[in-house]
């Protein structure tokens, strides 16, 4: 990240971050019957994270988000997969949908269904993957390590050399290196 920070962009990004997240959740919730859904909501959320990263620096995204976005995506996949598989435990079809319609105090009449859980999974996958991709590219093009040190254990084999830095002389490749 270059050191120059915009006086204007930073507070705007901070403010918009929350507004965009409210909008993202709104899109997620209306998604079953109206345009919207987990994918679009996830993209809106991802964009706000990227904006935060551009305004405050990429390491800030990691500090605010706390979890590794890729783990978020894995959790989303788990949620989506379990939503699909769960009906089979009751002998129903793979990915069969069930709905619940009723009245809740203060909220009024609501309509809930298992597709919402699936959509929430999609939301997590989209946010996780998009943020991960852009943060990795952003970090490595601005001179930081592509992955924070704590994540190295999850993404690297210790036989690997870091990719960062300019090309060195082509190294000797000794056989298979046992795989």
């Amino acid at each position: 990240m270059n050191a120059t920070r915009s006086v204007l962009f930073e507070p705007v990004a901070r403010g918009l971050f929350f507004v965009l997240h409210v909008f993202a959740v709104y899109l997620l919730l209306r998604g079953h019957d109206l345009p919207g859904g987990g994918f679009i909501g996830g993209l809106v959320s991802a964009i706000s994270w990227v904006m935060l990263g551009l305004a405050l620096g990429w390491s800030e995204v990691g500090r605010v988000l706390r979890v590794d976005p890729a783990r978020l995506a894995a959790m989303g996949l788990t949620v989506a997969g379990v939503t699909g598989a769960a009906p089979m435990l009751w002998g129903r079809a793979f990915f069969e949908q069930f709905f619940w319609h009723g009245t809740v105090p203060f909220l009024g009449e609501i309509h809930l269904g298992t597709p919402l859980a699936f959509d929430a999974g999609v939301f997590l996958v989209v946010v996780g993957i998009t943020v991960k991709m852009i943060v990795v590219l952003g970090r490595s093009t601005s001179g930081m390590r592509a992955f924070p040190r704590v994540e190295a254990d999850r993404y690297f084999s210790i036989l690997e050399e870091p990719i960062e830095g300019p090309a060195s002389t082509p190294k000797e490749k000794g056989g298979t290196d046992a795989g």
Binding site: L137, T141, A167, P170, G174, G175
Partner: peptide, 29 residues
């Protein structure tokens, strides 16, 4: 991302320069 990695490794993304040392490399095991 891959292309960026390729660029970091070789300093170029042009086919002629990337594979210029190909025949010699192939001899390596």
């Amino acid at each position: 991302t891959l292309l960026y990695r390729l660029f970091l490794d070789s300093g170029t993304t042009h086919v002629d320069e990337l594979y210029a040392d190909e025949p010699a490399e192939r001899e390596k095991s």
